[in-house]
């Protein structure tokens, strides 16, 4: 998958960053809404293939 180039830069790490780890999880995502994907187009068909064969994106890339 191609990456989107964003010309702005990331903020400086705050001085008070005192975590041992480089990664901190804060909160889960808000609940999702169930909707119907239109079963059309090449990208959907790839999605359907992954779903039917329980494959992940990276497995699909291979």
């Amino acid at each position: 998958m191609a990456s989107v180039k964003i010309s702005k830069s990331l903020p400086t790490l705050p001085e008070d960053w005192n975590s041992e780890s480089n990664f901190v999880a804060h909160a889960p995502l808000s609940p999702a809404v169930h909707r119907n994907l239109s079963p059309t187009g090449p990208h959907f068909l790839a999605h359907a293939r992954r779903k039917r064969h329980s494959r992940t994106f990276s497995e699909d890339d291979r």
Binding site: S9, P11, L29, S30, A48, K51
Partner: peptide, 25 residues
Amino acid sequence: QSTHPAVTVAPHLSYPIGVVIGEDN
């Protein structure tokens, strides 16, 4: 199979997910 709700019905994000950028956060 591909057009079956088991495949077509999917959770959709309620809010966008993003990253804080720039001086102005």
